[in-house]
Design a protein around this nucleic acid. Structure first.
Lengths: 156, 156
DNA sequence: CCGATTTGAGTGACGCGTCATCTACTTCCT
DNA sequence: AGGAAGTAGATGACGCGTCACTCAAATCGG
């Protein structure tokens, strides 16, 4: 157990610290690589892509802003900023909401569909290459189990 | 195997997709929670904290900027921007480099040491609570092994 | 029915991160 | 020695993300 000189609280053990730092590094490398691939092979950012995925996931192609925020796990204001940028570029469009005068719908445009259609194959290939195909069946199962385990504190 | 209507490339299987999305969510929740805790219990951001950790890691308290960038796994320009902000707040200081007229050293100030001393215990507690103590010994070992496995493509 | 509270959404300020580019210094090649 | 190429670091522009705040509409409690 390693203690840091100026702290009165135990730091992590060397092994725990190694694992934690590796985890941080993995996130860094993975998201940087995916972001680079995305912007190299399309005009979309990862954020754009995430939004468009959600918008193609829904049947009628239009979602309430808050529902979109929930599905993305983003703050509302983040969604708002993001949609503003995407609307400027013609990737999404907004519609008024009849049932609730405060709310509004957002939907994907045909330009948006075209953009995600271009971006998706390369992105999927990269996720496969770096993660899915890089683990065998057992490892992938363990991986899923662990991720679920670590998500527990955020589900309750 | 699920295919997306407008694509000619295979998407991920439902299970693979579920795991991948869970992983993305875990990153989101974890980093958001840690960032929130950090800024609630100190005046530091996660980025500030990372820099200060590196600067306390080295013995003499001064590092070449590029070395710092390598240790952090950050781009140089990111380091440059970050250090400028931190220098303004008195957390770090710069020194000229005698051996190389282009280069410079950066070191932690006493204000910087004080700041990280305040921030560290809460941060460590949060990492413990959400990750380390949330997994038993076997799970932690598996987790480390999987993270290492996924880091392989970035090591070669 | 009316005021108080809550909720859906947007905004401005500001810190973060990347990319392209710049400057100054060093190194390498001949 | 001297010019070409490379390297250390800084910078400006711009997109991303959060926080604190605003406004309008809906809902709730009496």
């Amino acid at each position: 157990m390693a203690y840091d000189g100026f702290m009165t609280t135990p730091w992590l053990s060397d092994e725990q610290q190694r694992i934690w730092r590796s985890w941080l590094r993995l996130n860094r490398e993975l998201s940087a690589t995916l972001a680079r691939e995305m912007s190299a092979s399309s005009d979309l950012s990862m954020a754009d892509f995430g939004v468009l995925v959600q918008l193609t996931d829904v049947a009628d192609g239009r979602v309430r802003i808050s529902e979109l925020a929930d599905n993305l796990g983003w703050e509302r204001s983040r969604v708002s900023h993001q949609l503003k940028r995407m609307q400027t570029r013609g990737l999404v469009e907004r519609f008024e909401c009849a049932e609730d005068g405060r709310g509004s719908f957002v939907g994907i445009t045909s330009a948006g569909r075209e953009a995600i259609g271009e971006a998706a194959p390369g992105h999927v290939a990269e996720v496969r290459r770096l993660v899915v195909d890089h683990l065998d069946a057992d490892e992938l199962r363990d991986f899923g189990r662990l991720v679920d385990r670590l998500l527990e504190p955020f589900n309750g």
